[in-house]
Amino acid sequence: MEYRKIPGTDLNVSTITLGTMTYGSPVPFEDAVRLTEYAVSQGINIIDTANMYEGYNRTPGSSGGVAEEIIGAFLKKYDRNKVVIATKLGMKVGDAPEDEGTSAAAIDKHLELSMRRMQTDYVDIYYLHKPDPDSSLEDTLTTMNRKIKEGKVRYYGVSNYNAAQLSELIQTADRLDVARPVICEPPLSLLKQEALEELLPLCAKENIAVTPYQIFQGGLLTGKYHRGAQAPEGSRGSEMPGWLWKLEDGLYDQLEAIEAEAAKEGCTMLEYAIRWTLRQPAVVSAIVGVKKTSQIDAAVKA
């Protein structure tokens, strides 16, 4: 396993991040704990989760927390200081006003809930899961800075922010003389490259690490899908077709072109997708969601 430093921190993280969105369903609780243990045994030292994650059982506004509970069961048996835990708040996880967004009240409430579920007294990286137009950016950043001083958050980052939104946040943090974000988590793949236009150059300029998600675009870039064939059993296309792009000729044209590029490098499409991601500006690690150990092996091999 290779490791890269997150600028402005003492964190050296594996170039593969274990994603946990499938935890709970389709990956049952105990299987997910074992999968996490296996990932760490293979050198992966950063785990990405969120307070909303509960696998395919997720519905808008449902309470989430399942993936964090699984991480807690893992941490109960593992040396906490040897793994980097990243979680998030901001998506709707209940009916109270503070159950959505990144207000001071939301951070105060949901950080405590996340730590309780994960059986830890601090979070290494706490993400603002999405921009919150209904909350004061000043209050959000001063509250996050307070959590850092309290030792409950080591560093924070942003997810699903565009370049303009991240730039405004950085300027506000500098004006308030509070901590800047150290990491950014955007969607990025060979099929979805908008983040390369402005966001990743901004992160490179501001010395902010990037850990992209959806690097396989819902499984499309794993080599599972072929023109004229049914979605294979156990794939996103068979289990949750509504979560997958429409399979049509234009998309197959793209996939076949990417597969040809992978062949030129002497690797699989999955390996090529990971390698391409890790070559992009400011990227320190690629988030890989898994359901079985063989997927971890393939990611580590890449």
Results as ranks from 00 to 15, higher is better:
residue 1 M to C: 14
residue 7 P to S: 11
residue 7 P to L: 01
residue 9 T to F: 05
residue 10 D to S: 14
residue 20 T to M: 00
residue 22 T to G: 02
residue 24 G to P: 01
residue 26 P to E: 02
residue 28 P to G: 04
residue 31 D to L: 12
residue 38 Y to G: 03
residue 42 Q to D: 03
residue 43 G to R: 06
residue 58 R to S: 11
residue 59 T to G: 03
residue 62 S to M: 04
residue 63 S to P: 09
residue 65 G to T: 09
residue 66 V to Q: 00
residue 67 A to L: 11
residue 67 A to C: 10
residue 70 I to D: 04
residue 78 Y to D: 13
residue 80 R to C: 10
residue 80 R to S: 11
residue 81 N to K: 15
residue 83 V to H: 14
residue 89 L to R: 03
residue 90 G to Q: 10
residue 94 G to K: 08
residue 95 D to K: 09
residue 102 T to A: 10
residue 103 S to N: 12
residue 103 S to H: 11
residue 108 D to C: 01
residue 114 S to T: 00
residue 117 R to S: 03
residue 126 Y to G: 11
residue 128 L to Q: 13
residue 134 D to I: 01
residue 137 L to A: 03
residue 142 T to F: 00
residue 144 M to L: 15
residue 150 E to A: 12
residue 154 R to A: 09
residue 155 Y to I: 02
residue 168 E to K: 09
residue 170 I to D: 00
residue 170 I to E: 00
residue 172 T to V: 13
residue 189 S to K: 00
residue 190 L to A: 02
residue 197 E to K: 15
residue 202 L to P: 14
residue 206 E to H: 13
residue 208 I to K: 01
residue 209 A to K: 13
residue 210 V to R: 07
residue 211 T to A: 15
residue 213 Y to S: 02
residue 219 G to I: 07
residue 219 G to W: 08
residue 221 L to K: 01
residue 223 G to F: 02
residue 225 Y to K: 05
residue 227 R to P: 15
residue 229 A to D: 14
residue 232 P to E: 04
residue 232 P to G: 10
residue 236 R to V: 11
residue 241 P to H: 06
residue 248 E to S: 09
residue 248 E to G: 04
residue 251 L to E: 05
residue 251 L to W: 12
residue 253 D to E: 11
residue 256 E to H: 14
residue 256 E to A: 14
residue 257 A to R: 15
residue 268 T to R: 01
residue 272 Y to T: 00
residue 276 W to H: 03
residue 278 L to D: 07
residue 279 R to D: 13
residue 282 A to Q: 07
residue 283 V to S: 07
residue 284 V to D: 00
residue 287 I to M: 13
residue 292 K to T: 02
residue 292 K to S: 01
residue 298 A to K: 06
residue 299 A to C: 09
residue 302 A to M: 12
